[in-house]
Computed example of a mutant assay.
Amino acid sequence: MKPLLIFVALLALAGCAQVPPVTATQPEKTPVSTDIMSFTIPPDALGARDPQLTAVLAKVGTLAAAQKQPTTILVTALGQDLPYLNQAIWRGVPAQHAVKLNLDNLTAGANQPYSVSIKPTP
């Protein structure tokens, strides 16, 4: 009988223990990207002024110009590479669509990758 009393006492004590409240957790929301397109430029392609890179950059200009809303192209690279990148992008932009485009440059930091993105102008 004594083991039964000990078991009942332990069970009663366990029932009094604080149980953390159950809360419904919301899954973390990932930021929604408004980018129409974005890619990283391989440093070796940029250094070699690769013709394929030049063609892709011209297509970026064409894609940005084809958007119905005003669009911003953001180019991130070293300052010395920005003129080449900008020129390659503008080659793909038809003259009549140049008005609704913004081409913004951002100088890359030491460990920052070179990139190009197209997004709606806020």
Rank of each mutant, 00 (worst) to 15 (best):
Lys2Cys: 11
Ile6Gly: 07
Phe7Asn: 11
Val8Gln: 08
Val8His: 06
Ala9Arg: 06
Ala9Met: 11
Ala9Gly: 06
Ala9His: 02
Leu11Ala: 14
Leu11His: 02
Ala12Ile: 04
Ala12Gln: 05
Leu13Tyr: 07
Ala14Met: 14
Ala14Trp: 12
Cys16Val: 12
Cys16Met: 14
Ala17Asn: 08
Val19Asn: 10
Pro20Thr: 13
Ala24Lys: 10
Pro27Trp: 06
Thr30Arg: 08
Ile36Leu: 11
Ser38Asn: 08
Pro42Trp: 00
Pro42Asn: 05
Pro42Ile: 01
Pro43Gln: 03
Asp44Glu: 14
Asp44Gln: 13
Gln52Thr: 13
Ala55Leu: 15
Val60Cys: 02
Val60Thr: 13
Gly61Glu: 05
Gly61Ala: 01
Gly61Cys: 01
Thr62Gly: 12
Leu63Phe: 10
Ala65Tyr: 06
Ala66Met: 04
Lys68Arg: 14
Lys68Pro: 12
Lys68Phe: 14
Gln69Lys: 15
Gln69Leu: 15
Pro70Asp: 04
Leu74Phe: 07
Val75Ala: 08
Ala77Gly: 00
Gln80His: 11
Asp81Pro: 00
Leu82His: 05
Pro83Asp: 03
Tyr84Gln: 05
Leu85Gly: 01
Asn86Phe: 12
Trp90Lys: 12
Gly92Tyr: 03
Val93Phe: 01
Pro94Tyr: 03
Pro94Val: 03
Gln96Trp: 11
His97Gly: 13
Ala98Ser: 15
Lys100Gly: 13
Thr107Gln: 13
Ala108Val: 01
Ala108Ile: 04
Pro113Leu: 03
Pro113Trp: 00
Pro113His: 02
Ser115Tyr: 01
Pro120Cys: 01
